[in-house]
Design a protein around this nucleic acid. Structure first.
Lengths: 240, 240
DNA sequence: CCAAAAGTGTTCTTACTACACCCATGG
DNA sequence: CCATGGGTGTAGTAAGAACACTTTTGG
């Protein structure tokens, strides 16, 4: 073990998911340089010499898309480092998963001019639309989100600070891609200790009878978990 | 995005777990160079320019400990890249988790002379015994293993190809650190579709009435899952 | 009044726990 | 025959699915 070592480029890439009009959307930026110029890609970039990986992820997201996620959920997803995944050089990327409420993106004119939300479904089906191996990373990110909704209060990260149970249910339906029974969902979710705290207010913004408004509670683990209807749980890729 | 990039060292480190006399053990190597010379560390090393990350993990394991894991389970755990986690230079390490049956280590004289199994408990409790941030990596690895025993057939990776239900149960008890009711365990585990396939043989190696011998079945997901007795489920560290 | 969505009650079924009990071997 | 561990039966309980039903608003 000498002090010589093969130099690598290290990047971070972000899978940023949100809900727009009932469907899961992913944040992408159009690449401005070769390779894959003009092709949509996950936001990301090189890690700087003096910053941590998570720090780099937040910085790149802000720089490329203007999004600041002070509150939103951000977690490490996996790392991808196949030789040849970037034609220019040897790059290892550390992918992060972020979940955000439906935020407006800054308008054109900034660095972030190329960033936009695209429906996650269309990014994943059929021929690869994303640069590099980003489709695979996105797939892994979506599967992670699906799994975590079951046993963590993560779904609230898709909601504004105050929300109704129906809004929360639409998060589950969009991410899981299956309808969820409103009555059973209501009972289960209000039964989980510490998941939701009522604000005392009600709203009729969903139409019909007024719904209670909730804030996210202190629980970090859902017990009992919400089980999704039997579905093909995609095993995560090896992520090498 | 210029073609200039800050060069990083990229390493792989391995959390290799096994069962010896009923307790979880971790594979460590004594460091031969500064920093942390003589201190036990997780096996690992630099990724070569032309190899994949998983490939590097298998190679380093073989080189440093003589262990070959053609059958054993190997999965990516997380990446760790805080500036300053290695005093010499900026290193990002991709950690892997491997689960192995109780294998003999090659004896001294080889490269692997310093490698040995240490009880996982003692490595994690009290003052840090491992070099770098390896205690944290080990903690994350153990927690991952605990969680995966619930819903995947991973426990069989700790067993030889043929095993009894009692042997499998001891895996669960050791990894979870709690006793498991033998009768209920037997019923649950034989009820999960595709988890175990009987060989037809029996053995009396555990004493008492002869036990059926099983091989690992085709299932990749346990349904229904085996639930561990309510315990403090350590949330994984952020792994940055 | 009607449509729409919130929220509750009820029934059926599945799965988990705890523990009593029987079975088949080695000594 | 007895100690040891393998394996089964059963009763009570927790939680899920499906769905009928009541409540409270807007139009």
């Amino acid at each position: 073990m000498s002090s010589e070592f093969p130099p690598f480029a290290v990047t971070v890439d972000l899978v940023v998911l949100t809900l727009r009009d009932g469907h899961l959307h992913t944040l992408v930026v159009d690449r401005g340089v070769e390779p894959f110029i003009g092709v949509p890609a996950l936001p990301g970039g090189f890690v700087h010499p003096e910053e941590g990986l998570t720090e780099a992820a937040r910085r790149e997201l802000a720089e490329e898309t203007g999004l600041r996620l002070p509150e939103a959920h951000l977690e490490q997803l996996a790392s991808y480092g196949d030789p040849g995944r970037d034609p220019r050089m040897r790059v290892v990327t550390v992918a992060y998963l972020a979940l955000a409420p439906d935020l407006p993106l800054p308008v054109a004119g900034t660095d972030a001019s190329g960033s936009r939300w695209l429906p996650t479904d269309t990014l994943l089906e059929g021929a690869p639309l994303l640069a590099f191996d980003h489709a695979r990373i996105l797939r892994d990110g979506v599967e992670r989100a699906r799994a975590k909704l079951e046993y963590s209060p993560l779904a609230t990260a898709f909601c504004p600070p105050e929300f109704t149970i129906a809004e929360l249910r639409r998060v589950y339906e969009a991410v899981w891609g299956t309808p969820v029974d409103p009555r059973n969902f209501h009972r289960k979710v209000t039964g989980v200790d510490g998941f939701l705290t009522p604000t005392g207010d009600t709203t009729t913004r969903d139409g019909g009878r007024p719904a209670q408004v909730f804030r996210r509670g202190p629980a970090t683990l859902l017990h009992p978990p919400l089980t999704r209807p039997a579905a093909p749980r995609t095993p995560p890729s090896a992520a090498d």
